[in-house]
Design a protein around this nucleic acid. Structure first.
Lengths: 140, 140
DNA sequence: CAGTATCCCTCATGATACTG
DNA sequence: CAGTATCATGAGGGATACTG
């Protein structure tokens, strides 16, 4: 009887790998930018500071909760600044930090590839689906 | 009484925006690469073709279901090839298509930013959290 | 070896209502 | 105006068992 069973060794390997993934900077960055509204917020702020209400209007589909959370996360990560002007009613402006600005080229690289090649991806997807489920074609 | 209430107009705007998001190539690409295992699979395949079992061993934390699904999605999108050798037992090799290879520079851009700046992000995160929840510090 | 099939659970997102 | 609080949901991810 071995000290650890095969299942235990697998589990340990999995845990170790999960720990690695949790640390992995690349994975962390991907997680950050894959939040549904992050890309759009960054795009808006790339053009200059915006008020909360401006963002809310531009990103027509976002809920208050998600916009706030997205902005808070970005602020927490040092990517955007949050400036409160204690007028009545209060005014809050959001803008990119230098760190946030340094991220823009990465976003542009993503956008650029997407605009060049996503059509190809979609075409491949369509033909794959057509081959798999001919929807009415005779199978035999 | 207006033809549409404010709530209705908001809802329409949201639907329109959702439709836009669903189409947006950038969003689609981000969704693809943010799948938990996609980055790691691409990294493995970047070095050359790999067998299913090789990938399974390298990506120690992945379940069979997720590895298979990830590979299938990538194949469907024209990013990887799947080659079955009908020996006994069967052998399946995965490799990058030219389209898949064209994605590597984007992944490298992400990785590069992450390795340069994620430490800064984490530091910001830590100090933000420290300020918000001093965990034992006197609040008054 | 390379998968399928099934059940389960967490978490991101969202709808709604309320507030300083 | 710029949020917070609460509840609901559904899709992604995973554990486990089975198969050609």
């Amino acid at each position: 009887m071995p000290t650890r069973t095969a299942a235990q060794r697998r589990e340990e390997a999995r845990d170790a790998f999960d720990a690695f993934l949790a640390e992995c900077p690349t994975r962390r960055l991907i997680e950050r930018i894959s939040d549904k509204w992050v890309g759009l917020v960054l795009r808006e702020l790339a053009c200059g500071p915006r008020r909360y209400s401006d963002l809310s209007r531009q990103l027509a589909g976002v809920s208050q909760k998600m916009l706030t959370r997205t902005l808070r996360n970005l602020e927490r990560d040092g990517l955007v600044t949050r400036t409160v002007t204690p007028s009545v009613p209060v005014r809050v402006d959001y803008g990119l930090t230098p760190l946030g600005q340094s991220l823009l080229p990465v976003m542009r690289a993503i956008k650029s590839w997407a605009e060049q090649y996503m059509a190809e991806v979609l075409a491949s997807r369509a033909s794959y689906d057509a081959a798999a489920a001919p929807a009415g074609a005779a199978t035999g």
